Simulated assay, not measured.
Amino acid sequence: MQISLSSASRVVPSVLPSRPAPPPRTARCSPPRLVGMFAGLFAVFSVARLLAYLPTMWAIWADRDASQHSTLTWAIWLGANLSMAAWLSVHDVPRSRAVLVNCANALMCALTLALILCFRGGVGR
């Protein structure tokens, strides 16, 4: 037990820990094969995700009708992708493929939102 004086000049006991604090937690290293597998899955699903925007964009363009599509939803997805890319950049991974994927998704959301706004305003009619 250690005794220390507080600002009120009274004696306050403080207890020191009996063992040292544990080291900070770090990520466990995954086997290289597992890391490669996840990198491959990330690449495949990133490309698939970018292609998944195209049917919606084509439907809006072909029908010249955007009444079934929410501008709020697409604006939120645009903001989510941009903010995630910014967050990754701030957290020391600016050259990460994840930043590029989020920027590409943001672009696709922006294009879809632009199509919705274009055909809601009567420009394409």
Rank of each mutant, 00 (worst) to 15 (best):
M1E: 12
I3R: 15
S4T: 15
S4D: 14
S4Q: 15
S7L: 07
A8H: 02
S9F: 10
R10L: 09
R10V: 13
V11L: 15
V11N: 14
V11T: 15
S14Y: 10
L16K: 12
L16S: 11
P17D: 14
S18T: 05
S18R: 11
R19H: 08
P20F: 09
P22M: 11
P22L: 14
P23M: 09
P23L: 11
P24Q: 04
A27W: 13
A27H: 06
R28Y: 06
R28E: 11
C29Q: 15
C29G: 14
S30G: 09
S30Y: 14
P31E: 15
P31W: 12
P31K: 10
P32K: 13
P32Y: 13
R33Y: 13
L34N: 10
V35E: 14
G36K: 08
G36I: 05
M37W: 08
M37Q: 10
F38G: 03
A39H: 14
G40N: 07
L41W: 09
F42E: 15
A43L: 13
V44Q: 02
V44P: 02
V47F: 10
V47I: 14
L51E: 05
L51W: 07
Y53H: 15
L54H: 09
P55I: 13
T56V: 10
M57L: 15
M57R: 07
W58E: 12
A59T: 14
A59H: 07
I60Q: 01
A62T: 07
D63M: 01
R64C: 00
R64Y: 02
D65K: 06
D65W: 09
A66G: 00
A66Y: 00
A66F: 00
Q68H: 10
Q68N: 09
H69M: 04
S70V: 04
S70W: 02
L72H: 06
L72N: 01
T73Y: 05
A75Q: 01
A75V: 00
I76W: 06
W77C: 02
L78A: 11
G79H: 05
A80T: 01
A80Y: 07
N81K: 01
S83G: 09
M84S: 13
M84Y: 08
A85K: 04
A85S: 06
A86W: 12
W87R: 08
W87D: 07
W87S: 10
V90D: 11
V90P: 03
V90E: 13
D92R: 14
D92L: 14
D92I: 06
S96G: 05
A98M: 05
A98H: 06
V99N: 05
L100K: 03
V101K: 04
N102M: 12
C103Y: 07
N105F: 07
A106T: 02
A106I: 02
A106S: 11
A106C: 04
L107T: 08
L107I: 07
M108Y: 05
A110N: 04
A110I: 03
L111G: 11
T112K: 04
T112D: 03
L113Y: 00
L113N: 02
L113E: 00
A114H: 03
L115R: 00
I116V: 04
I116L: 01
I116K: 00
L117R: 03
L117M: 06
F119P: 00
G121K: 03
V123A: 00
G124F: 02
G124L: 01
G124A: 06
R125Q: 00
R125M: 00
